[in-house]
Design a protein around this nucleic acid. Sequence first.
DNA 1: ATAACTCGTTGACTTTGGTTAAGAAAAGCT
DNA 2: AGCTTTTCTTAACCAAAGTCAACGAGTTAT
Lengths: 194, 194
Amino acid sequence: MDLSPLINHIRNYISLEFSDADLLLLQEYIPIVHYKKGSILLKEGEISKDSYFNFRGCVRMFYNINGVEKTANFYTENKFITVFDSYTQKKPSEVYLECIEDCTLAKISFDSEQELLKKFPKLEVLSRLILEEELSTYQNIVATFVSLSPEERYVNLMENRPELLNRIPQYYLSSYLGVSPESLSRIRKRIFSK
Amino acid sequence: MDLSPLINHIRNYISLEFSDADLLLLQEYIPIVHYKKGSILLKEGEISKDSYFNFRGCVRMFYNINGVEKTANFYTENKFITVFDSYTQKKPSEVYLECIEDCTLAKISFDSEQELLKKFPKLEVLSRLILEEELSTYQNIVATFVSLSPEERYVNLMENRPELLNRIPQYYLSSYLGVSPESLSRIRKRIFSK
DNA sequence: ATAACTCGTTGACTTTGGTTAAGAAAAGCT
DNA sequence: AGCTTTTCTTAACCAAAGTCAACGAGTTAT
């Protein structure tokens, strides 16, 4: 099991080198797990015991509102996946996490994380940076809802996360954009006939 | 100047008692400032040097999109006000902060905060908790946009932050809900004629 | 291979929101 | 008080989104 994509990614946030012994320790604490498309990592009401780092695949975060699934976010390669409310405060989750592709994830249990933070105190900073990045992501999402029409949000998505359009089924995208699947279909028709 | 509302509020997050000497020190580092309605605390493009704790009044966070102001959040009594991106990473702010009422705020400069963190290391935890609370707030806002209609978002606001409805002008609320002022007026008419 | 299912599109219809413009109501000012 | 400015409402019209239903292309299962 090769953690190097994770290690490399950590270097984007903080300067921290690991010795060979460190790496063995990391590999002990952080298993890499394969999940089949359709696997549910977390259900509404459960307390999230693990956070993840995405090596390959796509994880969808969604709410179930009266039986209708509403997508809040997509986590693709090299993203950390944490349901912060539930993970850090041990509250029941309001969201589901679902692998919508076959996924390869580093699985970091809460207890392992605490151990690793003792061993590598520098990682404290990392978790704060990830939290800030996540906040920034959500602030941007709110900004698009407050300031853009559904059509403009779709165009915005084409510009900012074009890779999503080719790999995410449209009915997931539509709920992420806050419109019905039929509307997204018509929005696309309008855009591409221009 | 009496910091006790702030001290009491901090107790909601962490257990931390201050001696009389501590209090004097806090008062030295954290001035309490009065702002007139209409005061701008931060402009787009500026780097946020201060975070605030709201004793009294209401601060509005908004984007300026092509000359149109779009409200992202309202901060009322006993809320911490921080533009995290800009404050922690010294990036130009994308948002404005405006006092939409006469306000009394504790003003915490970045440098003071660093000094205080040295003196009271327990406060480190506090800043993380505030960050998590802010993330949770934004996740909830996204949830309402993804899953509710404008009318339902207004009803949701009546249920969850009813105090806002009586003190915030409707044209600010409308941009917070992502609709035009005229639409909000019609939404209210629909709701109250039921 | 065919049946069942999933997903995307389209049409018809209704509801809702955006826009522009006008005016009413409320708040602030001298 | 009277005047001005700000805020809210209403109307008319158009564009867009929701809903329901049908259809077809593509996939999966048996």
